[in-house]
Design a protein around this nucleic acid. Structure first.
Length: 960
DNA sequence: ACCGCCGGGTGCC
DNA sequence: ACCGCCGGGTGCC
């Protein structure tokens, strides 16, 4: 008999699927299925076309087994040398079971290749089939493809069973649900309200108290609060305990997954890691640092070098200019100074950031001579060269040396029979040479991490950290894997990905995704880069693990390699679709899954009857603003004009075609409410564009409207905020990668997802950089005020009288408004800083530091752009927040408030939202409120629903 | 017999 | 596969 790989001579595709590079094929095959399903169209909005009994043949040639009731995957094999229509059948682990019988495969191939339907298989009878096996197929797809599918199958002599009656609408839904929940006999779908409620509660009550508390390693300089010790204990347990993953149980010799009806001979790989979903401000960063230091191999602390010499001497020598800044920090003082970091305080001291940057090639400012000097001495801090003074254990001595020292240690050799790090993906054997924790975070929180490490690691401990960032980052794998901690950003990670990425060539001890919810679009490059990392242990830190829908969870589970859900097909079939269709069992299963891997406490949670943290009070009030007579007149003029335009689109049914225009109208109204000078010159009618350059000019103008509004515009492809925005000739805005993918898949027939106009890659228009710059430099020679400005100034002046030490955040979505506000602030002698998305990392750090500093002459006000920096900023110096204009998404406002209403805040927090009376703003607030009750928000991820709900919004806003 | 019938070899796509 | 199919052996009863 030929070796298996010769028998599958078909193609690279299959070769990838079933290559026997790895003995335990679970990993690769699962990945293969995931890869095969990565083009998986979103199952949302699919309806069941019908069922069909089919046959799997060739069982005896393959090793994959299936149990009764188990789902199987169907994968097309267009390159199969015997039959280009071949459809392979694989079990949940991706092991091939057989093929679909030839004739049926011929019928299915057409349907599958043209994406007319997704075909799913379930085995209902018997494992004792030795040659062939019956299989129940179900066909799912978009309603509009149903006929094509039925006809296509009929042409080949197959008639789909539509379940007796003329199944339509709700009928089909319950069928789908029944197919999965029949075992448990639950067929009554959840009501929308129940669903929403259950979903919101998904992360509630995930506080696991039975783990008790764990003391952090000595090297953690900051005493942990009780709930942090609890989290540490839980995290250590998740990394060290070998409990079976959720739904797995032992059955005799086999391991059985009760949810999937799947059994396996090998122990299912345990999930070493999970989701730490504590509310922001509870100390996820500190807990993670504690984890890194406390739980190295075999539950022992990370071996660290303890130095009795002046730890700061190195820094002081190389960076004398920094010495003054470092004074007073725990590292600059002697070894006993660790306690000066206030116990339990999360408040970072940003003056220390540069201290750690010393070890980094991340030349935040390339011209800064201190940074380039720091680079030169980077190797000096490698511990390998200096004899460590205190090593706890021989094992660790080997580990301490990192991979470079690996061969010299006999003991280590025995522990890791396969020294090749790259080739081994299986995580079964603990690779004791893995030393490094990789932390990936958004750019905006890097400084926070560096700072927290500096603050919480004992002063006499040397931790090898490397900030993998900047053009001159050290890409040596040996170097990186000899560090204790490597920090990088999502952007650097995805930029490196596929480009000989050293980060992907190292097998990490631990990978930590900070603000993990930001990777949630599975098609994004960033997601792929994250999923491809090799690590023994994986963690996701996120204060808001779910932002919109169940869908968001997939990425998290896939990252954690929670089998089999890391393959989207199983996730869709077993969790996402049942849950969105209101299946109770599905929701229950989801709850169980999440519960097993997540720890979440909120600010309101209690430990032993006591609140985790006691935050000062927060008061939110709305301050109504009356427009002056002339402002009102201008506003009404604009409103009537806009209303007429939109009403015309409505009657013509061309709202979507003119979506950008509609948004522009709304935005102009919102701008009217803030300040007349925010209004850009009105653009002329798009359809009247004569020349291509004129067209381009106008598209850019439209794009400017959409972007400058900061109105949370989302890309209709990824349903996320637009990233790298481009505008189509039909004036719809998408992320460039998203729309590029649409175009490349559909080729010549590509159409705009919103209005179905033809689109071409060459016609996508970007916002030109010059325009961006020009945007910023809006000059305001002739300054005038506005009612809203007056309202703000009134408040600020009053506060200054009451207490000169009060600091305020002034928040707007319009960065141009923030710039406008500078004038009156200056006029009244306020000292302020501005923080928006355009700031460089270095500048950000500076600005925050300046603002947070308690110095009496420091800035009293921060002009903050609503979306700048995302979450994670620490602005506890402020106790008053002024929202100049309402956001579409109230959660964005909440996050913003949380930047100052968090641990470390000592004053009561007052939030004022300015709303112009009798205006579009009032209606936005009303819609905000209604939205919170809408199930759509959590579950209605259907594109169409979103669009229609947007339409309703527009109608309501314009009183149409 | 350019058939039928028998029984062994054989078996996914 | 306790099948179907193929192709060689065989050929009144």
């Amino acid at each position: 008999m030929l070796p298996r790989r010769w028998r599958f001579g078909w193609d690279r595709y299959s070769e990838d699927l079933f290559t026997d590079r790895y003995d335990t094929n679970a990993e690769t095959l699962s990945q293969a299925i995931r890869a095969a399903a990565s083009e998986e169209p979103d199952a949302d909005g699919s309806v069941l076309f019908g069922h069909l009994q089919g046959t799997v043949v060739g069982l005896r040639y393959y090793t994959g087994v299936v149990n009764q009731g188990e789902m199987v995957g169907l994968v097309r094999q267009p390159q199969n040398q015997y039959d280009h229509n071949a459809v392979m059948v694989a079990n949940i682990y991706g092991n091939q079971v057989g093929h679909i019988k030839r004739e049926l495969a011929a019928a299915m191939a057409h349907v599958m290749d043209n994406n007319l339907a997704k075909v799913e298989g379930v085995v209902h009878s018997g494992t004792k089939n030795s040659f062939t096996m019956p299989l129940m197929l179900s066909f799912w797809g978009k309603e509009e493809n149903k006929n094509a599918v039925m006809e296509s199958m009929a042409r080949h002599g197959y008639k789909l069973n539509t379940g007796g009656g003329k199944a339509t609408g709700a009928n089909q839904k319950s069928q789908g649900a029944r197919a999965l929940s029949s075992k448990k006999g639950l067929t009554i779908p959840l009501t929308a309200a129940e669903l929403k409620n259950a979903f919101d509660k998904l992360f509630d009550g995930l506080m696991e108290s039975e783990d008790g508390e764990k003391q952090a390693a000595e090297s953690v300089g900051t005493p942990l609060l009780p709930h942090q010790k609890q989290a540490l204990s839980w995290m250590c347990a998740r990394e060290n305990k070998s409990a079976l993953p959720p739904f797995w149980e032992r059955r005799g010799e086999l391991y059985y997954n009760s949810l999937m009806c799947f059994s396996a001979k090998e122990v299912p790989e345990r999930i070493r890691g999970g989701i730490l979903a504590d509310d922001m401000g509870l100390g996820k960063t500190l807990t993670t640092i504690a984890l890194i230091l406390t739980n190295f191999h075999k539950g022992k602390p990370l071996p660290v070098e303890k130095c009795e010499e002046q730890p700061s001497s190195v820094k002081a020598k190389t960076k004398p200019e920094m010495a003054s800044k470092l004074e007073g920090s725990s590292k600059a003082s002697d070894g006993s100074g660790s306690s000066d970091a206030a116990a339990g305080s999360m408040r970072p001291n940003l003056s220390q950031v540069e201290g750690i940057c010393v070890d980094s090639a991340a030349v935040v400012d390339k011209s800064d001579k201190s940074a380039s000097r720091g680079k030169k001495k980077a190797t000096k801090r490698k511990p390998i060269k200096e004899a460590p003074k205190c090593i706890e254990d021989l094992d660790f001595a080997a580990a301490l040396g990192g991979p470079a020292a690996a061969t010299s240690s006999k003991k280590k050799k025995a522990a890791t029979p396969t020294p090749s790090v790259e080739s081994s993906i299986t995580e079964s054997a603990d690779d004791l040479s893995a030393r490094t924790t990789l932390i990936i975070c958004p750019l905006s929180v890097i400084s926070n991490w560096l700072d927290q490490f500096e603050q919480h690691v004992s002063a006499n401990v040397k931790l090898n950290m490397y900030l993998y960032y900047g053009a001159e980052r050290n890409r040596s794998k040996t170097f990186l894997s000899s560090q204790d901690v490597v920090i990088t950003t999502y952007n650097v990670l995805s930029a490196d990905f596929g480009n000989k990425s050293p980060l992907h060539g190292i097998k990490w001890l631990r990978v930590v995704l900070d603000e993990g919810h930001i990777v949630r679009n599975p098609n994004a490059q960033m997601s792929k880069a994250v999923l491809d990392l090799k690590a023994q242990r994986r963690w996701i830190l996120s204060g808001t693990p779910i932002q919109n829908s169940v869908k968001d969870l997939w990425m998290l589970l896939a990252f954690l390699r929670l089998k089999p859900f890391d393959a989207r097909e199983w996730w869709n079939r077993v969790i996402q679709r049942p849950v969105t269709q209101g299946d109770r069992a599905g929701l229950q299963n989801l709850q169980t899954l999440v519960k097993c891997i997540t720890l979440r406490r909120t600010k309101g949670s209690k430990v032993n009857g006591r609140p985790l943290v006691s935050l000062p009070e927060k008061r939110v009030c709305v301050e109504q603003v009356e427009l002056s007579q002339s402002e009102r007149e201008e506003y009404e003029l604009a409103r009537n004009e806009g209303r007429n335009t939109i009403a015309r689109y409505m009657t013509e049914g061309t709202v979507l075609r003119n979506y950008a225009d509609v948004l522009a109208i709304l935005m102009r109204l919102r701008q009217h409410c803030c300040h007349p000078d925010l209004l850009a010159k009105t653009s002329s009618d798009l359809s009247a564009a004569a020349t291509p350059s004129e067209m381009r000019e106008r598209l850019i103008e439209k794009l400017r409207f959409v972007l400058a509004s900061g109105s949370d515009e989302e890309c209709s492809v990824c349903l996320d905020s637009v990233n790298l925005p481009v505008i189509t000739h039909c004036a719809h805005v998408y992320c460039r990668p998203c729309i590029a993918q649409v175009i490349s898949t559909e080729q010549e027939t590509a159409r705009c997802p919103l209005c179905r106009s033809e689109i071409k890659a060459s016609e996508l228009v970007e916002f030109p950089q010059e325009a961006m710059d020009e945007e910023k430099s809006t000059n305001s020679d002739t300054w005038r005020t506005s009612s809203k400005v007056q309202a703000l100034m009134g408040n600020l002046l009053r506060l200054r009288c009451e207490d000169g030490s009060i600091k305020c955040l002034v928040v707007s979505q319009f960065t141009r408004f923030l710039i406008l506000l500078e004038t009156p602030l200056r006029e009244h002698g306020f000292s302020f800083v501005r923080f928006d998305g355009t700031l460089s990392q270095k500048k950000r750090t500076q600005v925050i530091q300046e603002f947070q500093s308690p110095a009496a002459d420091g800035p009293a006000i921060m002009l903050l752009s609503l979306k700048a920096g995302g979450v994670g900023l620490n602005l506890t110096a402020a106790s008053h927040v002024f929202f100049m204009d309402p956001a579409w998404n109230p959660a964005t406002e909440e996050q913003c408030i949380d930047r100052c209403h968090r641990l470390g805040q000592t004053r009561n927090v007052f939030v004022t939202k300015f709303i112009v009376k009798n205006s579009v703003e009032e209606k936005m607030v009303k819609i905000q409120r209604e939205k919170q009750d809408l199930v759509e928000k959590a579950f209605g991820s259907k594109n169409t629903n979103r669009k229609t709900s947007r339409m309703d919004d527009i109608k309501a806003l314009m009183e149409l």
